[in-house]
Design a protein around this nucleic acid. Sequence first.
DNA 1: ATAATAAGTTAGATTGCTCTAACAAAAATA
DNA 2: TATTTTTGTTAGAGCAATCTAACTTATTAT
Lengths: 220, 220
Amino acid sequence: MHSYTEENYLKAVFNLSAIKGEANVNELSRLLEIKMPTVNSMMKRLAEKGLIVYESYKPVRLTAKGEKAAALIIRKHRLTEMFLVEKMDFGWDEVHDIAEQIEHVQSPDFFAKMDELLGFPKLDPHGSPIPDKNGKMEWTEYHKLNECKPGDTVVFKAVIHSSDDFLKFLNARQLRLGTVIKVKSVESFDGTMTVEYSKRAPEMLSQLVCDRILVAPKKK
Amino acid sequence: MHSYTEENYLKAVFNLSAIKGEANVNELSRLLEIKMPTVNSMMKRLAEKGLIVYESYKPVRLTAKGEKAAALIIRKHRLTEMFLVEKMDFGWDEVHDIAEQIEHVQSPDFFAKMDELLGFPKLDPHGSPIPDKNGKMEWTEYHKLNECKPGDTVVFKAVIHSSDDFLKFLNARQLRLGTVIKVKSVESFDGTMTVEYSKRAPEMLSQLVCDRILVAPKKK
DNA sequence: ATAATAAGTTAGATTGCTCTAACAAAAATA
DNA sequence: TATTTTTGTTAGAGCAATCTAACTTATTAT
Ligand SMILES: [Mn+2]
Ligand SMILES: [Mn+2]
Ligand SMILES: [Mn+2]
Ligand SMILES: [Mn+2]
């Protein structure tokens, strides 16, 4: 199969492609903390293997084969995170680094068992969808807290770019998935929001924070 | 720390040393399925790092440092096997290959949590002792079923060289750890034993099998 | 004791993954 | 449009881990 290293590149291409449908060498280099020439030559290797489409000076795209391979690694990552949170009592801010390693374990049985013990979950602990066994995932379109207007009442559904630090920040403010958030006001100068949730005093959240919180309208 | 590869060599040296206190290149080569020159150069690398004592044409020995490092990897391996059996419903014949991979995960928290969830077990699913956090393990001296005489009644305590095939063989005969075995007779020609256990008809076990079954006298 | 076999070593090559230095193309800016 | 900056590529090197072929030392058998 594919090496540990190749799997990490593949996943990086997948993640960067999520928005634009393609990924460039420079961003991959930054994300993976690997120098551009190294990334460049790996792109040629992945293209050789039919996992991506590579043309000089152009962004790369995943082939169908590459997309499936990447999704299946992400499936293992997210199942692992869910297992760590649900079955091993880890916090959602403690699981990413462990999952980053366990996602490379080669054992269909191991992940099938996790899936079963978890009751075939559709979402990971950060609200991201878990791809199915064929690498397909259904993505519910949430919107950013940023885009909400004063008076809106929404439910916290997912985080994006969930770094451990950001998750600890949310923990410290009792902000979790499922929390109902009422937008009180938005400062037009810097986008800072004043919000209310869980019967606490109003809280102020910077634009940077609101940009990473995905929400859905609260169903009455 | 040490690479995935180095860890596997270290563990191999540890396992081969278990009996004689030293390991030679040839046996390592067969065990790891890696050619002798490769093993030879790795031995020099491990010696360089102070993990083993290497002198030309002599068997290698682990240093105190190497012994501790190896024991800690084996700790992770055996905790993992125990976790897979106790918390994930795997059979004792299904866990080794998965543990072989997970033992390389770098995350003290992950294994500490396993340990805790398991209630700090002393033995793995095959009856082998789990080294403690300092790499120390207490080894109860069992004896082989082979060495028993007709009339002996013993308890099945552990397996040695537990390959999946051997474990499946034991499964098929309902032989598990804790099973009380009565030795009826021993064929002096080939060492085959006739034994009785679990209210079943007498069963015949070849010398090869009896050589891999560790037992203790049944406490009356 | 000598010859044959087994075990261990050296030399040299290969592959995967990484780097730096230098150069080329594309995009942004003046 | 011309210049500068950013992005991407090529060339060349190094290390880890593996191999094969050839050679040496140690052990076993005759
Ligand atoms: Mn993650
Ligand atoms: Mn990873
Ligand atoms: Mn094992
Ligand atoms: Mn291993």
